[in-house]
Design a binder for these strands. Structure first.
Lengths: 216, 216
DNA sequence: GATGGCCTCACATAAAGATGTGAATCTGCT
DNA sequence: AGCAGATTCACATCTTTATGTGAGGCCATC
């Protein structure tokens, strides 16, 4: 017999709270340790109960569910947190995630799926409603769009890339020359070409440009 | 009547391919335009078919599903891509996401959930298996831990910060002096202090360190 | 009221970088 | 064969940085 997954639940809407509570209690393998309408006692609750899972509504009166997340994590580090919300507000999602929430469901999720999500969560997964997952993924695709829409190709040669890498690494001309087994005058010469191509005229500008444009 | 969601499917395992294909064809509202065992023709396929959804196995012979993602996106920008895989290999997941995949399911997902995921996907969601979503979330939680564990406080004074900002902006000593209405010797003096505190001994190192440590 | 950090400035020298000019070798492409 | 670009090197000159040394005024803490 595996021990049941212990749960605490924060939700201000009484109807919803009682509905989900009943659902949890009716599910074998889940054990509801407490269901609360607000987060006023959240620190004490968690410290005492040490549940496996905390279900948190986002928009709670007083301390919001988001602000409660770090408190929960501090009071009971082993607890996995799942946020429940009606709105898929981007800002709130990311604040909750950064604070340490692991799951994220919209409240319109079917009861059976909520239960499945609780099991997923305690198994180390991060159940997410698809629309929320999309927002998360978009933030990953944001950095790389640069290669997609890359207007700037400075057509640096292989050797010129070696040199700019050296600069970005913080090396002096002399060090770069040693590293590449060429003379310092050759390094100068390449650097001249790099400056031409990057349209800059100092080491600093070249380094900054190379870093910002991801040339290295 | 809404038009059906059109689908192409790449999967080298014949049994699985035929199973899922049958499932899709049996589902009202879904239309399978093609199921292929490899990506050899992916560009032509997509250009011609312009499906709403592409299901891609990750480990395909020849061109991998990951490498196919950008090709799909280029040939048919409107197509939403869902990756299917047996392994939740972190590296592959992120490569696929960065390439532009929108959904990510493990193959052990129940058939009914795969179908549901296709609908989610075409509605603009990003269905993800919970274990994969967790890996994605962890990457979001990674950045913030740094401010928590911030061992380095270089205790730069206000003026020293002005100077390092100038350096990071790419200014020469002279420009910084003009900007701050102080003499170039004063700038030198401050820079000396900055170098001491940052434990560096060149403008380049100082700039790199300041950028990497987020001092600016 | 003394000590220490911060901000300011000056003068001096040595090292590093920027720029001009010129040139030889090698490669790939026309 | 010839041209373009990449790579290599040299010499010269000027500017920018790095570093040493010293110093006066301000402000806060002890």
């Amino acid at each position: 017999m595996t021990p049941p997954i212990t749960i605490v639940y924060y939700e201000d809407n009484r109807e919803l709270r009682e509905g989900i509570s009943f659902l949890i209690q009716a599910t074998p393998g889940l054990e509801l340790l407490g269901a609360f309408p607000n987060c006023r006692q959240v620190q004490d609750d968690l410290r005492g109960l040490q549940p496996d899972v905390a279900l948190m509504d986002i928009d709670l009166p007083g301390i919001s569910g988001i602000d409660a997340v770090p408190i929960v994590k501090a009071a009971s580090p082993g607890t996995q947190i799942m946020m429940l919300t009606v709105f898929d507000d981007e800002d709130k999602i990311f604040r909750a995630i950064r604070n340490g929430a692991s799951g994220y469901l919209l409240k319109h999720t079917a009861p059976a799926d909520i239960i499945a999500a609780i099991f997923d969560l305690s198994r180390g997964g991060s159940p997410m409603t698809a629309s929320i997952a999309r927002k998360v993924l978009l933030h990953f695709q944001q950095p790389p769009p640069s290669p997609a829409a890359q207007p700037d190709d400075y057509r640096l040669s292989a050797r010129e890339l070696d040199i700019i890498k050296g600069l970005v690494a913080g090396y002096s001309y002399k060090l770069i020359a040693d590293e590449l087994h060429i003379s310092i005058d050759t390094v100068r010469s390449h650097i001249r070409s790099v400056y031409d191509k990057l349209q800059v005229n100092s080491k600093t500008e070249a380094i900054l440009k190379a870093m910002r444009e991801g040339l290295v």
